[in-house]
């Protein structure tokens, strides 16, 4: 993950990490999730889905599990889940 200024306690802080899940065939290709993900995680895929739209695909594994794409998507086509440290479970 890139930082604008590296925090001094970077070693101790556990940054929330997430995984973004895309339900490709539900997507209508509006691109809102791609444009407004603050981490730039997504990009349009070159492939078409079954309805002829280009769904998003993961470009950078930088998801913060902020759920913003999940709330913004008009199609219930994208959501995120948390990656938790194995020692914490």
């Amino acid at each position: 993950m890139k930082y604008w200024r590296v925090p001094l306690d970077l070693d101790e802080v556990q940054v929330t990490r997430g995984v973004v899940h895309i339900i490709e065939d539900r997507c209508k290709g509006c691109g809102y999730c791609i444009e407004y993900c603050s981490r730039g995680v997504l990009e349009f895929s070159k492939e078409f889905n079954k309805n002829g739209y280009h769904p998003p695909r993961v470009k950078a594994e930088d998801c913060l599990n902020c759920h913003y794409c999940e709330l913004l998507c008009p199609e219930f086509a994208i959501f995120s889940t948390e990656l938790v440290a194995e020692t914490a479970v």
């Binding site: 539900r26 999940e70 959501f79 990656l83 440290a85 194995e86």
Partner: peptide, 27 residues
């Protein structure tokens, strides 16, 4: 740092599916 493990919501492909008539999607 400890290894990370993904937590997937059990049985819920999308967290709102219990509130949506999925047979009518796409809307």
């Amino acid at each position: 740092k400890p290894a990370l493990k993904e937590v997937i919501p059990e049985s819920h492909p999308h967290p709102l599916e219990d509130l949506v008539r999925m047979d009518r999607i796409p809307h």
